[in-house]
Amino acid sequence: MSSPVAIVTGASSGIGLAITMHLLSRGFRVVMADVNAADGTRISAELGESTKFIQTNVAVYADQAVLFREAFKWGGNRLDFLAANAGIDDRQSLYEEDSEESEDGTPKELSLLTLRVNLDAVFQGIWLFKHYVRKNAIPGGKIVITSSAAGFYPMSSNPQYTASKHGLIGLTRAAGLHQPLISENITVNCICPTFVHTNLCPPHIRDKFPQEHVTPMSTVLKAVDLFLDSSASGETVELSLGQLHYRKVPPYLDDNTRWLGQEAAKLWEEGYEQPPQLKEQAV
Rank of each mutant, 00 (worst) to 15 (best):
I19K: 01
P107D: 04
E238C: 09
L23Q: 02
D80L: 03
R26M: 04
K130N: 06
L228A: 01
C201P: 12
Y246R: 09
I88V: 06
N185L: 12
G14W: 11
T257H: 10
V122E: 00
F129N: 01
K266G: 14
N199E: 13
Q274M: 13
L200C: 09
E96W: 14
K73D: 14
T215I: 11
V117T: 00
S25P: 06
D63P: 14
T162S: 13
A264H: 09
S44A: 14
A223K: 01
P107R: 01
A59P: 05
V66S: 05
D90C: 04
H131T: 07
E212W: 14
Q262G: 07
H22D: 04
V188L: 06
W127G: 03
V8M: 02
R206Y: 15
T51G: 12
G176E: 02
L181C: 06
K130S: 07
D39K: 08
V31A: 03
D255H: 11
I143K: 01
K73V: 15
S2D: 14
G151P: 06
L181H: 06
T215A: 11
E97S: 15
V196G: 04
D229Y: 14
M217W: 10
N77T: 08
T194H: 09
K208M: 15
L244Y: 11
A121C: 08
E49T: 13
V117K: 00
C190D: 01
A6R: 00
T20S: 07
G141H: 03
I191V: 04
E184T: 05
S231T: 12
G151Y: 09
I191F: 02
V30T: 06
S50V: 10
D120W: 04
R247C: 06
D34M: 06
V224Y: 09
N85C: 04
L200T: 07
D39E: 10
V122T: 00
N185R: 12
I205F: 14
S157Q: 13
L94P: 11
G167L: 00
S147P: 12
T146P: 05
E103S: 04
P216G: 07
A65P: 10
R206G: 15
F28T: 03
E109A: 13
I54Q: 05
K266P: 15
Y272D: 13
G87S: 04
A149S: 13
I182T: 09
F81D: 00
D90L: 00
K142A: 07
R42A: 12
L267H: 13
R29A: 11
P107C: 03
Q211A: 15
T219L: 11
G76I: 11
H197D: 15
L260P: 10
F28W: 08
F68N: 03
G48A: 08
E100D: 14
V60N: 01
I88L: 05
G141A: 02
S50Y: 13
H22G: 05
L168P: 10
Q179T: 12
G167P: 04
E97P: 15
T106W: 06
K208Q: 14
H197Y: 15
M1Q: 05
R258C: 08
P275H: 02
G271C: 12
G105F: 00
P216H: 14
P193N: 02
D63F: 08
L260E: 08
A62F: 15
Q55N: 12
R29D: 10
W268M: 10
V8Y: 01
N185I: 12
I7H: 01
M217H: 12
P210R: 03
V35D: 00
S93G: 13
T198C: 07
L119N: 00
